[in-house]
């Protein structure tokens, strides 16, 4: 019995969430006194693969099969099922990313495994039970899910578990089982990535703005602040509904749920649906001209005042602090 972790990469590079999920899987393997095998699809760069050893993967399986260089969840599920069999893995872990949401349920159904989606802590394994805390009700609550099946699949939320060094020298092995034609129905025609932008679901720092900004032409100062901090930008729902900002920036109950270290909310009132998606942020700063804005009730730091005056000053202060 062992633990298997599927590690995503973007154009051959691992992001922070990749090291988080390997660290998390390593901790589970340690809990169960067993080994950890990592699987990487579509990347054979040894130097990059070795990085997974730093976080505790003792074996790294990779496939360079070009049919799998873009994400096809059926084929990826088949490959992971085979890798799990090869590694005799009872537990498969991956990131609760956009792709993970498409892949983990397919794999779980294939393996007859129970799935915990969006874990936020290590499993509790006492009492011959295996229970995992996860986020539920769009961040308004947590549920503790017991997996009743022998095989188990867990997806980990970004920013929920720290990347923890635990260095081993990994055995790096190529693993390329034949791909079934019937698994290749989905064809990725094009991948479009906004360059130089911090990806919102995984961001450690987020600058978010709402209807208080009055119009899309005023987002320059939000981007300046985000750039000074190295933060991702986000917005409230009415802002993306009005087309001021793209949908993928919309956070909240019906948008992206985020849990960065720092969430700065500017000109956002703090409606319950907005708070649902952001309240698990570690630190919340609210800037609002209305001292009665509900957002102040769930904030750590607040400034009452006009965003148009405060935000540029804050950007300057951040730059001064960073010496840029």
């Amino acid at each position: 019995m062992s633990v298997l972790v599927y590690v995503e990469h973007a154009e051959g590079k691992f992001r922070k969430s990749a090291f988080e999920v390997v660290s998390y899987a390593k901790a589970i393997a340690d809990q169960l006194s067993t080994g950890l095998t990592a699987v990487v699809i579509g990347n054979g760069d040894k130097a990059e693969l070795e990085k997974l050893g730093t976080y505790g993967a003792s074996t790294v399986l990779f496939t360079g099969n070009t049919q799998l260089s873009s994400f096809v969840n059926q084929a990826y599920a088949s490959l992971l099922a085979e890798a799990a069999a090869k590694a005799d893995a009872a537990i498969v872990v991956m990131t609760n990313s956009f792709s993970g949401k498409g892949l983990a349920p397919r794999l779980a159904a294939r393996l007859g495994a129970g799935l915990v989606a969006g874990a936020v802590a290590l499993p509790e394994t006492g009492d011959r039970k295996f229970t995992v805390k996860r986020s539920a009700f769009s961040g308004k609550a947590f549920s503790f899910v017991t997996l009743l099946s022998d095989k188990k699949v867990i997806t980990l939320n970004p920013n929920a578990y720290p990347a923890t060094e635990n260095a081993v020298t990994p055995a790096i092995e190529e693993f390329s089982p034949a791909v079934k034609e019937s698994d290749l129905g989905t064809l990725v025609k094009e991948i479009i990535r906004a360059s130089g932008k911090v990806s919102l679901p995984e961001a450690e720092l987020v600058v978010s703005a709402g209807r208080g900004l009055k119009g899309p032409e005023n987002w320059g100062m939000i981007e300046d602040l985000a750039n000074a901090l190295g933060a991702a930008t986000a917005c409230s729902k009415p802002v993306s509904d009005a087309g001021w900002r793209p949908h993928e920036e919309h956070v909240g109950q019906t948008g992206i749920a985020v849990s960065p270290n720092l969430y700065i909310a500017i000109g956002i009132s703090g409606a319950i649906q907005h708070l649902a998606g952001v309240s698990s942020s570690k630190t919340i700063v609210v800037i609002n001209k209305d001292p009665e804005a509900p957002f102040f009730k769930v904030a750590d730091y607040g400034i009452v005042g006009d965003a148009f005056e405060i935000v540029p000053k804050l950007t300057e202060a951040i730059k001064a602090y960073k010496g840029i």
Binding site: A113, G114, A141, F142, V145, I284, V286, A299, D300, D306
Partner: peptide
């Protein structure tokens, strides 16, 4: 394949610390 053991609601945050609008350096 799964059963829900229990639910929890997040621990509420402590009181908000207010910073004066003309003192953003303090916030930093």
């Amino acid at each position: 394949l799964t059963s829900i053991e229990k639910y929890e609601t997040p621990v509420p945050r402590g009181a908000v610390k207010m910073v004066a609008a003309d003192d953003v350096a303090k916030l930093v």
